[in-house]
Design a protein around this nucleic acid. Structure first.
Lengths: 198, 198
DNA sequence: AGCGTTATGGACGAACCAGTCAAGAATTGA
DNA sequence: TCAATTCTTGACTGGTTCGTCCATAACGCT
């Protein structure tokens, strides 16, 4: 009944994510996104409303995909819980080291730039962090049931610690730490987790 | 022989730091700084060159003051090394929790926004991180000499881990974690450090 | 006091950028 | 084929911002 869209909304959001990610919010121009997507600015504004609304969509998508990816890496049976935790921690270190452009994580970058003045971004960042913490806690509890981590430790506190280490790895990576340093941190963090006495 | 400056250069830099810290680099206008310092833009440009150069000065000062403050907190005799480490870790957690505006640390914020595209900022951030790591390593080695931390552990790796935890605490604080969570992380991190067998 | 030198402050220029708008294009249903 | 509807394009607007410039002010030296 009407003219259909020529572009895929999700694809445009992915391109916008790239731009916001590498340039930050304030330094990215809507025209950059328009050029990168080969769309006119009118289409962009028609479909997404404006720059801020568009960033909110991008940020929301990103947070969702992070939680989903971590969930895939950490959920499973008790027997492999420790292997999954270990693999996840090393994976974060490796991914951070591989990010030669040092853009870090859009969650951290976006929150750093906007959380103070944008309640929507702040809320979403908080919710994402909480979801990640819950995933880690679930996996650590599984490790405890399987006898890989001391049963008398508080899984919530260990999860918070691991989460802090993971965010710290990203922060250090952005500041230019070497791959060796990052994997050392991952390795040391896993090594200091309390093992059950036997 | 010529007209003297009416303002104190350091004071202007401190004011500029406030602005850059709370607004970020891109979102802070030179006119904001001019108004806040009650100076004309001509004076600002005459004294500092421009926005980027001014930020470099601010960032440099900030990094220096951070290293100096941490150095004061961590340097001392072997007997109190562990107490200093513990106090420092708790202090970071408390300071992060007290930062209700969630501005985090200018080092992290500036690096997040600019390191990718500004080599000067990237270099300074890297050097600062390395200095912090060295300070932690020195204190941890002192702990080991005093028998507070297992002597067979690698002090460099433990220092890197602690540094990651500290940066992680700041990142989580910016994302809105509660004070309780942050102090829990500090407490857990100290608890999992390897103690000497006796 | 007069001069040379440097600081000041505000007006100005040029570029930039978010968002709007109107004219035209594409599609479906009648 | 025509009408109705939504999409697209890109020029335009209004406001903002970096940086410059210049007339003037303030100081030390002679």
């Amino acid at each position: 009944m009407a003219r259909p869209r020529k572009f895929d909304e999700q694809q445009v959001l992915d391109t916008a994510r790239e731009r916001f990610w590498s340039g930050g919010y304030a330094a990215t121009r809507m025209e950059d996104i328009a050029e990168a997507t080969e769309l006119g600015k009118g289409s962009l504004y028609g479909a997404f409303g404006g720059k801020q609304a568009m960033f909110h969509r991008v940020f929301d998508d990103y947070c969702g995909s992070v939680v989903e990816a971590v969930s895939r890496q950490l959920c499973g049976n008790d027997a492999d819980a420790y292997a999954r935790l270990s693999a996840h921690v090393y994976a974060v270190a490796a991914a951070t080291a591989a990010d030669t452009a040092h853009r870090g994580c859009l969650l951290a970058k976006g929150a750093a730039e906007l959380a103070e003045h944008d309640e929507t971004v702040a809320k979403r960042a908080r919710a994402t962090i909480e979801a990640l913490q819950a995933l880690l806690e679930g996996d650590i509890a599984a490790c405890q049931r399987n006898g890989d981590i001391a049963a008398d430790a508080d899984p919530g506190k260990l999860a918070a610690l691991v989460l802090a280490v993971l965010r710290g790895i990203e922060a250090l990576g952005k500041a230019g730490a070497s791959e060796e340093t990052l994997t050392d941190i991952a390795c040391t963090a896993l090594a200091v987790l309390p093992r059950p006495a036997h």
